[in-house]
Amino acid sequence: MEKVIDMKDENDAINPQRRAFLGVAAGVTAAVTVAPGVLLHTVDAAPRAEPVTSDVRWGLLIDTAKCVDGCSACVDACHHENGLNLQTMPAEQAVKKWETQKPAWVRKVKLQDNQTGRMTTLPLMCQHCDDPPCVDVCPTGASFKRADGIVMVDRHLCIGCRYCMMACPYKARSFIHSDVHGQLTSVPRGKGCVESCNLCVQRRDFGQESTACVDACAAEGHHAIVFGDLKDPDSTICKLLNEMPSRQLREDLVLNTGVRYSGV
């Protein structure tokens, strides 16, 4: 616990400088390299002023052929972007048990075909269904689908009943089992609510091009995940979906997922 506080202080100490800097640099729009191999795009960084509409539908295409076994760049990037790494294991908890209780918005899964022995590895996250079971079952309406197709949790309404976790066919949601300290301004999260991948909604509303996992995968040179608008025929994701065979997970449930997989 003490360690967490120390780290927080160290982190907080940076803020004044950053804030001073912001005053000078405000308004600059650019695309620059912030770390070796990481390219941040800020094309149109205007915050959203109009309500999101159903003219767009955000989605992901995952090419399992390009996904590399043993790589967890997307998972790490997600933890980083959304501050999941700020939630540390309670001191008295057993590591093995915490593994079953810690948050996970995206995880890597490795499969083998029973008949052919073919191996596949892929990232698995909220599939952003068009007809999401989690939204159907939520008693308070905290679990909802935004007009642009993002399925997310309104943490102000979530009472922590976890019925959505029972209903999700992808086991995409996790419950915050312990206190969270030092949250990011952009991703508020706290004990007792359910959460899941929201396609980096904070990036969406500020007009950024992609998600943390996509950037991280690209930075590793794998380019296994593509993000884009499923309703725009000229988008990269639509063109790729046109070219290559892809499928939804558990398509028998006819949920019309926003995340598609090829090669699985």
Binding site: C138, P139, L157, I159, G160, C161, R162, K191, G192, C193
Partner: peptide, 25 residues
């Protein structure tokens, strides 16, 4: 056992009628 039992009032004031849980309330 709720994660946020103090928000019971939310469950009493916000209903999603496609949820069998809401009907059960």
């Amino acid at each position: 056992d709720l994660g946020r039992p103090e928000r019971l009032i939310v469950a009493m004031t916000n209903y999603n009628f496609s949820s069998i849980f809401a009907w059960n309330i």
